Computed example of a mutant assay.
Amino acid sequence: MRDEAMTDERFLRHLDAYGASPERWPSELRAGAEAALARSPALRAAVDEAMSFDRLLAGSPPAVEDARIDRLLSAVGAGARAVPQDGLMLLLLGRMPRRTVAGFCAALLALGWLTGGWLAGTLPAPIQAPRGQELALLHDDVVTLFDGDSQ
């Protein structure tokens, strides 16, 4: 196809590909593009729009106020808090209110802290040994009952 016979559709396709600046167009397409621009006001409007877009891309981004960012983050946070989160707790407990899940997690944390304290020996053991028997520490990790018999 000759350069002079560039259709509007072909011109728009090249305009999307190369932008509004004629320097970016391949030299073999420029003559046909200029002829198409001379005959079509719609193509000139498309080039003006593409130039505006190119200027927008070349410029610096607009300044955004901190208050606008804060409002956006607050809205996103509120939306995220309103939707139940899927995760391990959902798999284990099913859907339940957040306060219930938070209480359950706090109870598990306290239970783990108490158990760790008992095992480490920093907290007193919750179960007392029966009378006449003593606790013997045979190893750092194993606590056994010892009543004095050699059985």
Rank of each mutant, 00 (worst) to 15 (best):
F53A: 13
F53L: 12
F53K: 06
D54P: 00
L56P: 00
L57I: 07
S60Y: 07
S60M: 13
P61Y: 08
V64W: 02
E65H: 09
D66T: 09
D66Y: 04
I69R: 08
L72K: 04
L72M: 12
L73R: 08
S74T: 12
A75Y: 07
G77K: 07
G77A: 15
G79S: 08
G79M: 09
A80L: 07
A80T: 04
V83E: 00
D86L: 15
G87I: 02
L88V: 15
L91Q: 13
L91I: 15
R95D: 01
R95E: 01
M96D: 07
R98V: 00
R98T: 02
R98Y: 00
R98F: 01
T100D: 11
V101N: 02
A102Y: 02
G103A: 14
F104Q: 15
F104H: 14
A106P: 06
A106F: 11
A107P: 15
L108T: 13
L108R: 10
L108H: 07
L109D: 11
A110N: 05
A110Q: 07
A110E: 14
L111W: 06
G112M: 08
G116V: 08
W118D: 14
L119I: 11
L119R: 03
A120Y: 02
G121T: 04
T122H: 02
L123F: 09
P124E: 14
P124F: 14
A125P: 03
P126K: 08
Q128W: 04
A129F: 01
A129P: 01
A129M: 04
P130R: 01
P130E: 00
R131W: 02
R131D: 10
G132T: 05
E134S: 11
L135G: 05
L135C: 08
D140M: 09
